Amino acid sequence: MKLNEIDQHKSTEEIAKNLLGCLVVKETEAGKVSGWIVETEAYLGVEDEAAHTFNGRKTPRVAAMYETAGTVYIYSMHTHHMLNIVTQPEGIPHAVLIRAIEPFEGEDLMLMNRQKQGVELTNGPGKMTKAMGINMSDNGTNIEEKPLYINDSLKKIPQVIEASPRIGIPNKGIWTEEPLRYTVVGNPYVSRKRGKVSVDNGWKTVLK
């Protein structure tokens, strides 16, 4: 997924959906870990009351949000790191939060990092980043370049994508209920999962 070349011409909502099934990878000295993205949330810049850049807020903490599409924005919340990818041209602070992944490579290393098993390993934004070793050192990097990147050679295709309100966004007017969270229906790694788990975890196929 070449955000700088292609996807910046799409809406942030479209990009949030297109990221489902992409393979996000982190390479560390301890080894490589990766997983299929199964849950995302869109944040729509200066007009979005839930975004860190609402009303044009611009501080050193959110500087990465104003960089070019593909820039990684990491912030801390309750000791957890949150992985976001900037989606629009420089100066337009839209981003997508990666909320959960289905592990693919390096699950043993993820288990060492998280000390949890099963879906609890990566079924939430803070859980996922801890399992993958993603931290503030990744802030401001580009998602097309190592050590934290999206592998374009493989992509899974969701059977059904569900849109629903974002999680943990109270008292933000219309933005509390806006359906800006996107999930792979039937995947067990979706946070606060609803419904049955599909035999194929909600995927159609893998494209090479």
Rank of each mutant, 00 (worst) to 15 (best):
P147L: 07
I169T: 04
L97E: 05
L19K: 12
S164K: 15
I150Q: 05
I92F: 06
E39C: 11
V96H: 07
E13V: 15
L111A: 13
P103A: 09
I167W: 02
A64I: 07
S191W: 03
N4D: 10
E177W: 01
K196M: 15
T176H: 06
Y73Q: 04
Y182N: 09
N187I: 14
L121W: 00
A100F: 08
L109Y: 00
A16W: 01
G124F: 12
A95Q: 05
E90G: 00
C22V: 03
N151S: 11
V190D: 01
I74G: 10
N84K: 07
S76V: 05
K127A: 07
N142I: 02
T12F: 05
I174Y: 02
A30F: 03
V38A: 05
V197G: 01
V199T: 13
D108N: 13
E145R: 03
V206Q: 00
S76A: 08
E145G: 00
M82P: 00
N139A: 09
Q115I: 00
E5D: 11
V197E: 11
L3S: 06
M136H: 14
P60V: 11
A131F: 07
G31W: 13
V197P: 02
R166N: 06
Q115C: 01
T40E: 05
I15M: 11
P103N: 03
Q159A: 11
A16K: 00
R192A: 15
E47P: 03
G173M: 14
E177F: 06
N4A: 10
K10A: 07
K156H: 11
K2S: 11
M136R: 13
D152Q: 12
G168Y: 12
Y182V: 03
M65P: 08
G126N: 07
K146I: 02
L154G: 00
V72K: 13
L97I: 06
H81D: 12
L121N: 01
V184L: 13
I157L: 09
G35V: 12
P188T: 06
M110E: 00
L207I: 15
L97D: 08
R114F: 01
P147V: 07
D48P: 10
D108I: 04
P170N: 01
I37N: 03
G124Q: 09
P179Q: 08
T28S: 15
D138F: 13
K2R: 14
A63T: 09
M132Y: 09
M1E: 06
V184R: 08
K193T: 11
L180C: 09
E14L: 04
S198N: 14
I98W: 04
P60S: 14
I6Y: 11
G56P: 09
G140W: 07
T71I: 01
N84C: 06
N84L: 03
S137A: 14
